[in-house]
Structures are given as C-alpha cells and as structure tokens.
Amino acid sequence: MEKKDDNITAMCRPAVGEAGKTGDWRDMRPVIDQSKCISAIKNRAACLLCWLYCPDGVVIPTVPVGIDLEYCKGCGICAEECPAKAITMVNEGG
C-alpha cells in the first residue's frame, strides 16, 4: 500500500495569522473612547456590535473592549457600526 497523501486538495484550518501579521497593512487605527462604549459604561459584556461585525476577528470582547492591533487592518467597519460612536479612526502616521 502506498503512502497516503493527506495533501491532495487545497484546504486550511482556522488559525491566527494565515496571511502573516496584517496589522502593518493599516492606514488608520481604531481608537475606543471608553467613556462612550456601552460595555464600558455598563461594566459588563454588552452591545459588542464591533466584535460581531469585525471581518478579521480582531475585536477582543472583554470589558473594556480591546482590539488586537497586530492583525487589525484598519478597515473601519467597527467605527461605522458602533451605535454609541465610541470608535474613531485615527491616522497611523499622525
């Protein structure tokens, strides 16, 4: 019996950093104003729409909410979706 090749179709498992550290792709960085963030105000996991909408899964659903800037590409979807307007996109350069 020949050796079985497990690698006969293209596939990938869910993993951190499939495309390397994508944080350096970013032009603008999300900054959370904790005084407006609903989770921070209520001091418990609440709202978390930023976490739900983030296409890269870099929002950390803790209290207070965090963002993994090593992988955040700066797309700004979290800022757009935040109902409390707690997230602002800030120029990386400035």
Binding site: N7, A10, M11, C12, R13, P14, A15, V16, G17, E18
Partner: peptide, 23 residues
C-alpha cells in the same frame, strides 16, 4: 475538525500557520 476546503490558492507554494508547506 473545522476547515476551509478549496480556499483561494496562490500560484506559489506556501506555508500555512501550522507550518505545513501547502501545495
């Protein structure tokens, strides 16, 4: 054992995050 079958694949070979060199 969740996985993505037939993701977009590049013209070149590439290491996946688990360190396996993929076709």
């Amino acid at each position: 054992d969740p996985r993505n079958i037939n993701p977009v694949i590049f013209p070149w070979r590439r290491q996946d995050p688990e360190g396996v060199l993929r076709d």
